[in-house]
């Protein structure tokens, strides 16, 4: 029954699909492998959505459990990466509805105070400027930028995750670019 949803040529090419099939068959090692492949990107996405690393860690575990339980229903109509991001997005929205962010949480999408390699680079000041400018964008635009430029989703895939029309993705990109250009030039003028 499930077989009809798995285009074989696609499955043979894509190791993710093989892993999800194995998860659907109950192989626990498959979820470990999938976690190693996609966990870092999902974690970064969830930290951005929730603004708190510990919270993001908890929700990431929920995402993986939800992926395990939904594996048999994965139809191969999207990539596994898109599917996992969609689950992560749903879980993050649910988590935010269940409880407000902890008082010491960072605003979503701001880098943490932990020392990061990028903070050791020469362009710290410029990065902070960019981080501030990105933070001023509407959340939906920031998320679109992240899905496209960090997670490497195509337009239709980003539309699938954010559940908006492809035209909305394109207009968000253009608006975000224009807004960033404006915000950064304003910061330069102020400086």
């Amino acid at each position: 029954m499930t077989e009809q949803f798995w285009p074989m040529a696609y499955a043979e090419r894509d190791p993710d699909i093989v892993l999800v099939k194995a998860m659907a068959a109950g192989e626990a090692t498959a979820i470990e492998s999938l976690y190693q492949r996609h966990g870092p990107a999902l974690f970064a996405y969830l930290v951005g959505q929730l603004g708190d690393r510990q919270w993001a860690e908890d929700v990431l575990q929920e995402v993986m459990l939800a992926a395990w339980r939904s594996a048999a229903r994965f139809r191969g109509e999207s990539t596994v990466r898109t599917w996992l991001l969609a689950i992560a997005r749903y879980r993050a929205l649910n988590a935010r509805q269940r409880r407000p962010p902890p008082p010491d949480a960072l605003p979503p999408d701001l880098p943490t105070d932990d020392p990061k390699p990028h903070q050791k680079l020469e362009h710290d000041a410029q990065r902070d400027e960019i981080a501030r400018a990105l933070q001023q964008l509407p959340a939906a635009q920031r998320e679109t930028l992240e899905l496209i430029f960090f997670h490497g989703l195509s337009g239709p895939e980003a539309a699938q995750v954010q559940k908006v029309a492809i035209g909305t993705i394109k207009s968000r990109l253009h608006r975000a670019k224009a807004a960033l250009r404006h915000l950064l030039s304003k910061e330069e003028e102020d400086a």
Binding site: A28, G39, P40, H118, I130
Partner: peptide, 29 residues
């Protein structure tokens, strides 16, 4: 340029990946 900015911005959030929780492992089956 925008892609490079954004990649470095998001990369700032990447930390060590926490291990898969024992609770998740226990819940698998």
């Amino acid at each position: 340029q925008l892609a490079a900015w954004h990649q470095s911005h998001v990369a700032g959030r990447m930390g060590a990946l926490p291990p898969l929780s024992p609770l998740v492992r226990a819940s698998l089956h």
